[in-house]
Design a protein around this nucleic acid. Structure first.
Lengths: 154, 154
DNA sequence: TGTGATAGTTAGTACGTATAACAAAGTACG
DNA sequence: CGTACTTTGTTATACGTACTAACTATCACA
């Protein structure tokens, strides 16, 4: 996490930042930290981290997906994903089923408990999402997302 | 760091992301990782990390600043800043001088070596910055930065 | 059948960041 | 003055995330 002087302190307060304050990368970091912090807090009641929610959402959207596919989609390395799935499975939120015709891979799916928890978590996620969009203001969200996508593909 | 399928793989390739691909937070993370990765590579010849460059830039902009002020400005916690300054000082890039009238604090300044290295690093930094702005395309950079600032202040 | 790729796993490591506790020096105020 | 509180920098420590390398089991293919 990152400290700042707590809540919404202005960016270049007092100390000259040497041009950093007009830099995409620097502001990108601050924005990203703020968003993650907010989402983390929103997910705390469900004992889910940001990565956990992402994984659950992908499994819900594509039941039967395999771990490697999720890793690619979310940009999580395979070894790290193992731990995440392990934990979700231990909490009975996710199932590792067999893939017909490939005994190496697991077909991931949500358990009823997983679906129930995700349903509640999605409400909190949506509330968080609206908060972020509000911060964007009248800004054209579509163009913002497109710009971020282009930068992500650097 | 983060892998992706290497260079600029499209965002929701093959696997449904469950709405994540239209999420500010998710794209913010991808963009931030891409930018840091690129900047890290650009700074590698100078053996500087992103945080190192930021600190040098702030010291250059405000010579005589103290560690706590830099920490606030860059959102780096005091204990972590100690290590960064230690290393920069060990490489003779930064000096911890006395602050007249306060024997607790250090007045930080660049050494000639520090100034020389920073001058070269700034060229690489600027090149990186142009690359990012190019990725932004015809997007109004000012509005983008303003939007990021608002999100950062969540 | 054998060679190479793929899915998942394990272990070890690096890095960034967080907290707590401390010494030294400064500040405020009765 | 002197006591209490604050601030600066430091140490030690822990934790989360991510990276690498190496391994097993299975699959694809020729």
């Amino acid at each position: 996490m990152i400290d700042a002087g707590e809540r919404g302190e202005a960016i270049g307060e007092g100390v000259a930042l040497g041009g950093l304050e007009t830099t995409v990368g620097f502001l990108l970091r601050l924005a990203q930290v703020a968003v993650f912090k907010d989402l983390l807090a929103a997910l705390k009641p469900f004992d889910l981290r940001v990565a956990d929610l992402s994984v659950l959402l992908v499994i819900e959207a594509t039941p039967g997906t395999q771990q490697s596919a999720i890793g690619e989609a979310l940009r999580i390395q395979r070894p790290n994903l193992v731990t995440i799935i392990d934990q979700l499975q231990a909490r009975n939120l996710v199932r590792r089923g067999p893939v017909p015709g490939d005994r190496r891979a697991y077909a991931l799916s949500l358990t009823p408990e997983g679906e129930a928890l995700l349903r509640k978590a999605k409400v909190a996620h949506a509330r968080h999402g609206r908060k972020v969009l509000d911060a964007l203001g009248d800004f054209e969200t579509e163009r913002m997302l497109a710009a971020l996508r282009r930068i992500a593909a650097l």
